[in-house]
Design a protein around this nucleic acid. Structure first.
Length: 564
DNA sequence: CTGGGGAGGGGGCCC
DNA sequence: AGGGCCCCCTCCCCA
């Protein structure tokens, strides 16, 4: 990421959404700032209107219509939802605040019913998936489901309208009755929750779905994407709806099923209206509120705009929803995503080794063909990579342009300098420095500061110094072993984030991603469970375990430690 | 500890 | 827009 054409720097805080949700959940549990209480058959659940509106189409319409009536946030303080089983309501609330659905398998249908009634589409889809039902299997057409959405909206609006009217008269807190008949029998298609739905075999019903489809502008596509994008199949398949933890399902957020606008929409790209609300309803808002920090992406777009076309047209930077990294270049995000999914679609026909990229496979093939397209003009050496030749040429020239700013040892290769600096080679020299905040030029003992280096070397040195003051060093109390900010082996969270990412790639690009990704996670998880040092073994897979930011931070921590 | 090779990943350019 | 190709950087491994 360049410093930004217009000087703006986007600093992603990938933990923010999680922390925000976590704090909200804490508040909910403590009853703090709760402005809405849901009740079900005597059980009371304090909650927040804004959260419920964000996660539930029903509440969004309810409150939206309410506020549209000019009543601001006054709204209902108690909402009776006897139509939703208490356990199911509890699970849905947990989902709203944790992005994870934890329910006993026996309560699946209740949760499905509740999710449908409240317009929490992703949960409903997940439950249907687990139950081995599809909308089609239940005889529910996309048209019917859309009608169901519309009906839910209408009901909510009607409820809102009615209650608003009565509130005006009574001017007191309202108890909103949401009887089952309101939704179940009158407006909504009851079939999805009907106990007589056809229990089709899970795998068959899903496998019958096309694995890839071209993106369709039809909102109905949303329905199908539930089986493709987040692809709960990948999670569910091995256990077939049973989990080791006592039959509880922990369902990661299903937000990916929503067709999202690209993280950084091209300036001229207007979000299609149909992608906005219709057919996507609840999840759209959920995504918008909790998924990708928009700052970087937006700034990226702004920066692009500020470039005024100076840059090439379709350099559209996109933010990886998993690692938050900004990926430059059109069409590069899928390539980047394979670093998370572990997918290696390019296999060497000679030795079977697989690669994430075809250009890497092409280079690899040179080993088999013997082709070494980069010959040294000064000797007989030939190289597979251009960069190897470049490094090699420095041997002939004797140039060692990469000098340690601390011990002034010079290296021909930049990575060797970095290795040197990360090692203990010049640690003693560094520890002799005065214990002060590092300043530029401070380390130039006896030579009046840094020698005449290349700008690159100066930048390197500066980077090394400044890295001792990474903010999290302060925030974490300077612990040298603090976990990195991002995804320190949190498989579950990463899984959910990656699933979001998969969705953003569009349905036509999703074939095989979830399975591969989750397979990779399983491997990773097993490695961690085995106590294997993620950084200890340096297989390519283990290298993928460490995010670039993580490595940078680790480097910074090392520097900080050495400063001590 | 260092030099060198191989590989993973990101970005730019082009089609 | 997506993908191919290339360059570059970085890391890991081995001798």
């Amino acid at each position: 990421m360049s410093p930004g054409e217009d000087g703006l720097i986007g600093i992603p805080f990938p933990e923010h959404s999680n922390e925000l949700l976590s704090h909200l959940n804490d508040q909910r549990r403590a009853g703090l700032l709760c402005d809405l209480t849901l009740t079900s058959r005597g059980a009371r659940y304090p909650t927040h209107r804004s959260v419920m509106a964000a996660v539930s189409l029903y509440f969004r319409q309810l409150f939206g219509a309410e506020e549209g009536g000019g009543e601001g946030g006054g709204g209902f303080s108690v909402c009776q939802l006897d139509c939703v089983a208490p356990d199911a309501l509890d699970a849905l609330l947990e989902f709203a605040y944790t992005a994870t659905l934890t329910i006993p398998s026996s309560g699946m249908r209740d949760v499905l019913r509740g999710a449908q009634l409240l317009g929490i589409q992703c949960v409903a889809d997940a439950c249907r998936d687990i139950l081995g039902e599809t909308a089609e299997a239940e005889g529910e057409t996309a048209e019917q489901q859309r009608a169901q959405h519309t009906a839910a909206e209408r009901i909510a609006q009607e409820e809102s309208r009615i209650m608003r009217g009565s509130r005006r008269k009574t001017d007191r807190k309202r108890v909103k009755k949401l009887g089952p008949h309101h939704i179940d029998s009158s407006a909504l298609n009851p079939s999805p929750a009907s106990p007589i739905s056809h229990p089709s075999p899970l795998s068959d019903s899903f496998r019958s779905l096309p694995s890839t489809q071209p993106p369709s502008p039809e909102p109905d596509e949303f329905r199908h994407k539930s089986g493709q994008n987040g692809d709960p199949r990948a999670i569910r398949e091995p256990g077939r709806g049973t989990t080791p933890n006592g039959g509880l399902f922990h369902w990661p957020p299903e937000r990916p099923r929503i067709a999202l606008p690209p993280p950084v929409p091209p300036l001229n790209d207007k979000l299609s209206e149909e992608d906005d609300m219709e057919g996507f309803g609840d999840d759209g808002i959920l995504m918008g509120s909790t998924s990708i920090p928009t700052s970087v992406a937006d700034r990226g777009a702004v920066a692009s705009a500020a470039g005024g076309g100076r840059k090439r047209k379709s350099q559209t930077p996109q933010q990886c929803p998993v690692c938050q990294k900004i990926i430059h270049g059109a069409g590069k995000l899928p390539r980047h995503m394979r670093t998370h999914t572990g997918e290696k679609p390019f296999q060497c026909s000679a030795c079977g080794v697989r690669f994430t990229r075809n250009d890497k496979l092409k280079i690899h093939m040179r080993k088999h063909t013997g082709e070494r397209p980069y010959p040294c003009p000064h000797c007989t050496a030939r190289f597979l990579h251009s960069y190897d030749l470049k490094n090699h040429l420095s041997l002939h020239s004797g140039a060692r342009p990469f000098e340690c700013p601390l011990c002034h040892k010079a290296f021909a290769r930049e990575d060797h300098l970095q290795r040197h600096r990360k090692g203990h080679s010049c640690l003693e020299l560094r520890t002799r420095r005065p214990r002060r905040g590092p300043e530029p030029g401070e380390d130039g003992r006896g030579d009046g500061g840094m020698r005449e280096h290349s700008n690159h070397l100066e930048a390197l040195a500066l980077q090394a110094h400044s890295s001792a003051f990474l903010p999290h060093q302060v925030l974490d109390g300077g612990s040298g072993s603090v976990p990195p900010l991002m995804f320190s082996g949190d498989v579950e969270r990463e899984r959910s984030l990656a699933l979001q990412a998969l969705a953003q790639l569009g349905p036509h690009r999703l074939a095989g991603y979830p399975e591969l990704f989750l397979r990779g996670l399983e491997l990773r998880g097993s490695r961690e469970a085995d106590g294997e040092d993620p950084g200890g073994t340096h297989s390519p897979a283990s290298q993928q375990d460490r995010w670039p930011d993580e490595m940078e931070e680790e480097a910074g921590e090392e520097e900080a430690e050495e400063e001590e």
